[in-house]
């Protein structure tokens, strides 16, 4: 195994040379791209990548251009994890048979998929790949909505969000269901490493990606991807909105090792009210009407409760 890339600080990290290229067709200010850069730049090893149908895929490999400087495959909406698992199986087979073209260059296998392609349509393929124990990393670009097709609800969409399939209206406050807890589901697969990350906390993210690359077996990364188009905020505010998410604890940063050891990896010095996070986004605008205000209180209570739960999981973890 190649030595892990040393990244002590941001200045040192900035010497990385991207293997993901510009002039792709992602929206200005898209967090997907920031996440992809941080993942790929966490290693200098060769990469075998896949992407599920979604914003990332339809923006980075539109004939006649590719934005990828590493081997990359897209098959369909649901099977990005299995695609890269197949490639990983071939790597193992050819290694055993002594037929690798560059045997001294062990690669990293990474699948990128949106929340729709992970929480919903790709769930079975993800689960199967993790059950089989392939040495791959699945990175969910979690923008909590089907953004590529214009803003439909996914099972990652949080309660109270206005989407095109659960629009807020005179008698509805939008999405009625809370976000699915993928972190626990993936931890329950017995995966050696499961982590939630956010691109604004780059150091936390790099540490987790490198941990994920270092372990043997399937790794699940749930990356918050603030979506300027569907969350409805100004394109320049991607990092600012991401900061609101992590500092309000709406998107807590933690990891689960071997399905049993929970570590909270970021504790904000000043926890800000959930209200501030919601207020920054157009998708929650209607919650600030008098008849919906109670939902903001419920949001705060839910986030508080989840934070207590996470701390309890951490305390009760085997050390």
């Amino acid at each position: 195994m190649a030595e892990q890339k040393k990244i002590k600080n941001l200045k040192e990290f900035s010497k990385s040379v991207d293997r993901f290229e510009g002039s792709n067709l992602l929206c200005p200010g898209c967090a997907h791209s920031i996440i992809v850069r941080e993942v790929l730049n966490a290693t200098n090893d060769d990469l075998v990548l896949s992407a599920a149908t979604g914003c990332l895929e339809v923006s980075t490999a539109v004939y006649p251009y590719t934005s990828w400087d590493a081997s990359w495959i897209h098959i369909g909406f649901e099977n990005a994890t299995t695609a890269v698992a197949g490639a990983e199986a071939m790597y193992k087979a050819l290694k055993r048979k002594g037929r690798l073209l560059q045997p001294d260059r062990p690669p990293k296998f990474v699948a990128f998929a949106g929340d729709g392609a992970t929480y919903d349509i790709g769930f079975q393929w993800l689960s199967g790949t993790f059950e089989r124990g392939h040495d791959v990393m699945h990175v969910t670009l979690d923008n909590e909505v089907y953004a590529n097709t214009g803003g439909q609800s996914s099972s990652s969409t949080p309660i109270g969000s206005s989407t095109t399939t659960a629009p807020a209206g005179r008698v509805s406050y939008g999405e009625k269901r809370v976000k699915k807890d993928m972190m626990s589901i993936m931890a329950a697969h017995g995966a050696p490493y499961v982590a939630q990350v956010a691109p604004n906390k780059w150091k936390d993210m790099i540490k987790k990606i490198q941990h994920g690359f270092a372990v043997e077996g399937p790794v699940y990364i749930n990356a918050m991807s603030a979506c300027t188009t569907e969350w409805r905020f100004d394109v320049a505010d991607t990092i600012a909105v991401s900061d609101l998410a992590t500092d309000s604890l709406v998107f807590p940063l933690y990891e689960i090792i071997d399905g049993e050891t929970w570590n909270i990896t970021y504790r904000p010095k000043n926890v800000i009210p959930v209200r501030d996070y919601l207020a920054a986004q157009g998708r929650f605008k209607h919650l600030f009407k008098p008849e919906n205000e109670y939902l903001i209180d419920e949001w705060q209570q839910r986030i508080d409760k989840e934070w207590v739960r996470l701390q309890r999981m951490e305390e009760n973890s085997p050390r």
Partner: peptide
Amino acid sequence: NAMLDFEKPATYGAQTE
């Protein structure tokens, strides 16, 4: 055009409209 040929990265499954 093997994906495991790291000397010649290849993109499979591009979109064509």
